[in-house]
């Protein structure tokens, strides 16, 4: 091989080994994850990255080898994403999520939560009054497939049996089905927020409507108290979770419609990420609700026990989210 004549060739020959080492390390991380590298290799990456980056600056200014500049650009970009990507320990992240991120997000969205809750309550009251007034409205609020015979024509005995006659087989399957189904709906409610809040709002009202209609039917037969136990044992958790999902959707839609002083995309981005934290939590709550509904409700048939669980859950969730606590920064002072 002849001695290089161009400065850019010498420049490349002197540094090529470093670049290919960085390239090799990044490829290994891509394949096997960062854990595959030992400490020395991990620590060498930022150093190699910075030298590649400075080489890129020099190459742009002095070398006309197009492929070299492209290679360095892609190498530096890959290294940049690794060096500046957030990598906290998974356990640390989970701890932070439960201790601060989740309750903080819930607290920050209290206005939206209240709005979503009120909408649901509004739907409940309206449909309750309407169905009491004229039982035919029931069919407008509750889709036929969902009733399972619990409609205004049902007898008191039958209605009572639906509250306590739990089918004991396949309970955990039932719980799993409820969880996946509800979580899907919650994610949908959140996503709908992107369309300027309205569909999320409708979903809240609609959810309340089926609730109110069901209550009207049972109350007429004097089973209101019993239905409350049947519904709220998991309902306090589930309805709370759905309300929070709607709230997260509202926050996004509101930021999209009224971004305030920030650029629209920026405002929506911030709202979306905050909502997403809350949605992680909502999925967890729905998992708990699925267990309570699928297992707890079928195994516990005493009304008072059901109400006790319902109250415990709502108090526990509220305390977890809204109990005043010191911010991490305050604690340090």
């Amino acid at each position: 091989m002849p001695a290089p004549i161009l400065k850019s060739q010498r420049f490349r020959q002197e540094r090529e080994a470093d670049w290919s080492q960085l390239d090799r390390l990044l490829r290994r991380i891509d394949k096997e994850g960062p854990a595959a590298l030992d400490d020395r290799q991990l620590l060498s990456i930022p150093v190699l990255y910075r030298s590649a980056l400075s080489a890129l600056s020099v190459a742009r200014a002095t070398s006309l080898d197009h492929q070299l500049v492209e290679y360095l650009e892609s190498l530096c970009a890959r290294a940049y994403f690794f060096v500046y990507g957030a990598r906290s320990h998974p356990l640390e992240r989970i701890r932070q999520f439960f201790l601060t991120d989740w309750p903080n997000a819930a607290r920050a969205l209290w206005r939206e939560t209240a709005a979503a809750g009120l909408l649901m309550l509004l739907g409940t009251v309206i449909s309750y009054v309407m169905v009491l007034h004229d039982a035919d409205w029931f069919y407008a609020f509750v889709p036929g497939a969902m009733t399972g015979g619990r409609d205004p024509t049902a007898t008191t005995a039958f209605l009572r049996s639906t509250l306590y006659g739990g089918q004991h087989e396949a309970l955990s399957l039932f719980a799993a089905f409820l969880f996946t189904h509800n979580a899907q709906i919650a994610i949908f409610a959140f996503a709908l927020g992107f369309v300027f809040c309205l569909p999320s709002g409708f979903l809240m009202i609609y959810n309340g409507c089926s609730l109110g209609a069901l209550f009207a039917v049972f109350v007429e037969k004097g089973l209101g108290f019993q239905l409350g136990g049947w519904l709220f044992i998991h309902g306090t958790t589930e309805l709370f979770a759905v309300t929070l999902a709607g709230a997260a959707g509202f926050r996004v839609g509101w930021a999209l419609a009224f971004p305030g002083e920030r650029a629209r995309a920026e405002a929506v981005g911030a709202a979306g990420r905050q909502g997403a934290i809350l949605m992680f939590g909502v999925v967890i709550m729905l998992f708990v609700a699925g267990l309570l509904e699928g297992l707890g409700r079928q195994l516990i048939v005493n009304d008072w026990a059901r109400y006790a669980i319902a109250a415990t859950m709502i108090v526990a969730w509220s305390a977890y989210f809204y109990w005043p606590r010191r911010e991490a920064s305050d604690a340090a002072v």
């Binding site: 500046y84 990507g85 992240r93 979306g272 990420r273 997403a276 934290i277």
Partner: peptide, 16 residues
Amino acid sequence: PLTADAIFARNAIREI
């Protein structure tokens, strides 16, 4: 850095 909440948000929207 690309955070977990951003990834959740961008994929939740796949619903719509």
